[in-house]
């Protein structure tokens, strides 16, 4: 006869099985579907060398690199200020820094249009000076930076918070000033946070779609190209581009895991 404990055990095992099933449906099956699609008909790998594939890859890889560097240069000092400084409205700044995490990318893109568009808050005066930002490579970099930077701030800040205050006090009593403490104590001890932030920011930037679509104009990044090709029935190109993006994301995650483990 089944007892209450047996029922609970069976229920627990069933729920684990169900979790795996959902995981398979959402992650493994789509990947298998892609592989099946690629190899269901003879693949012309020469497409990989065509401009339709190479150009979006190069554009995405380069813009993601630039936006990651910008995110790094802005995000680490921001993380430092948010961790170690006290000032009015600090909580507001903290919330604003994390806003891109929860903001729909289309809204992010629209905000950038309002700011950097021809009649935007910054775009208008720049336009008078003959500088156009919207629908250029720079606009893509801005959109990617907008969504990627919080990853660096958040990950760096977590590590900075872990540094024991006595280490900073010790550095002060040994004669180190603020910049030296930052360079010689805080930064080395937050290294893994910064590195994992870089990896996550790069992955987020290269896969950015919604905001980029609003600001890129005729320029086509890797995710945009997949979207365009899928809609226009160019399945072969969409398949190969998807494979490339998955490979990049997979490698990024492996790198992230290594950084975290170190």
């Amino acid at each position: 006869m089944l007892t209450r404990s047996n029922y609970l055990n069976i229920g627990f095992k069933l729920s684990i099985g169900l979790s795996f099933l959902v995981f398979a449906l959402l992650i493994i099956f789509p990947l298998l579907a892609l592989v099946f699609n690629i190899f269901s008909s003879p693949v012309d790998f020469r497409i990989l060398l065509s401009g339709a594939v190479v150009d979006p890859i190069i554009l995405s890889v380069l813009t993601a690199m630039v936006s990651t560097v910008i995110s790094l240069l802005v995000g680490v000092p921001l993380a430092y200020v948010l961790t170690y400084k006290s000032f009015p409205l600090k909580n507001v700044l903290d919330t604003l820094v994390n806003l891109p995490f929860v903001l729909p990318p289309s809204v992010a893109g629209y905000l950038l249009l309002l700011t950097f568009g021809r009649f935007g808050l910054i775009g208008y005066p720049l336009n008078i000076l003959g500088i156009t930002i919207m629908f250029t490579t720079f606009a893509i970099v801005i959109a990617q930076t907008f969504v990627a930077m919080p990853f660096i701030v958040s990950s760096t800040r977590t590590k900075m918070k872990d540094i024991h205050p006595s280490l900073i006090d010790a550095a002060k009593t040994l004669g180190a000033h603020e910049l030296e403490i930052f360079r010689k104590v805080i930064l080395p001890l937050s290294k893994t946070g910064v590195l994992s932030g870089i990896v996550m920011a790069y992955a987020r930037a290269i896969g950015e779609f919604g905001a980029t679509m609003m600001v890129s104009g005729l320029l086509v990044t890797l995710p945009l190209s997949i979207f365009n090709n899928a809609l226009s029935g160019e399945r072969e190109t969409a398949n190969l581009l998807s494979l490339v993006l998955i490979a990049i994301s997979f490698t990024t995650l492996i790198l992230f895991k290594r950084v975290v483990r170190s």
């Binding site: 024991h164 006595s166 280490l167 006090d169 010790a170 550095a171 002060k172 009593t173 040994l174 004669g175 180190a176 000033h177 010689k184 104590v185 080395p188 001890l189 290294k191």
Partner: peptide, 30 residues
Amino acid sequence: LPPQKRNIGFVFQDYALFPHKDVFENIAFG
């Protein structure tokens, strides 16, 4: 005077040794 200019040595309860530096580098820091 800020702590950097007082020339006062401090041995902390938890030692506050820099974990990313070796023994020599810790002692040489100041």
